[in-house]
């Protein structure tokens, strides 16, 4: 939590604007993104070890839907739901917490100590997921840019704008983003 004593919450207006979004097409896009990440970062799933068949409920408490990361049958699915689906493990907290951990800005344990993050169900699976994602050094803005095809040049300015507006971390913050050469 380098520069953040309190993690930001999604602006309520933004949350309300997202509410009418249909979950089916959103789920298709999210699954596409998750599969792309899985393909580009195979080590992430190797690190999950025995939890490669687990369902994780990512309950971003300031989003109008809950996300299910379903890894059963060797397939990666990331889907949006109005109500909580069944899962072996639940991680709940503001979306900024999830994104900050993913980008190396926040420490998961520190978010847990401060009660910004709640863990329920299979704690061991959650620890494995947290460690796997931390090691993968993901960058959502880079993944979105690759996914955007011809719209790629517009992604980075849009991400910068979204970061300024929301206070969330949407890209890798460490100095190693250029690689370890």
């Amino acid at each position: 939590m380098s520069d953040h004593d309190q993690i930001p919450r999604l602006p309520k207006l933004m949350g309300r604007a997202m509410r009418p979004l249909p979950t089916a097409p959103l789920s298709v896009t999210l699954t596409l993104l998750a599969r792309r990440i899985a393909k580009r970062h195979p080590g992430l799933f190797q690190r999950l070890g025995q939890y490669r068949e687990t369902r994780f409920l990512l309950d971003a408490t300031d989003l109008p839907f809950k996300l299910l990361l379903d890894l059963r049958d060797g397939k990666v699915k990331l889907t949006a739901h109005r109500t909580a689906p069944e899962a072996e493990a639940r991680i709940a907290g503001p979306i900024a917490g999830f994104l900050g951990m993913m980008h190396g800005a926040y420490d998961g344990d520190a978010l847990f100590f401060s009660r910004d993050l709640i863990v329920e169900g299979d704690t061991s699976a959650v620890v494995a997921l947290r460690n796997a994602i931390d090691d993968a050094e993901l960058d959502l803005s880079a993944e979105l840019a690759e996914l955007a095809g011809p719209l790629k040049p517009f992604v980075q300015p849009a991400v910068t704008l979204a970061e300024k507006g929301s206070g969330m971390v949407l890209h890798r913050v460490d100095t190693l983003a250029g690689g370890w050469t």
Binding site: M1, S2, M101, G104, A105, G108, D134
Partner: peptide, 10 residues
């Protein structure tokens, strides 16, 4: 060792 790279770096 069980903590994130964010913790380690800081």
């Amino acid at each position: 060792r069980q903590r994130s790279r964010a913790y380690v770096a800081e």
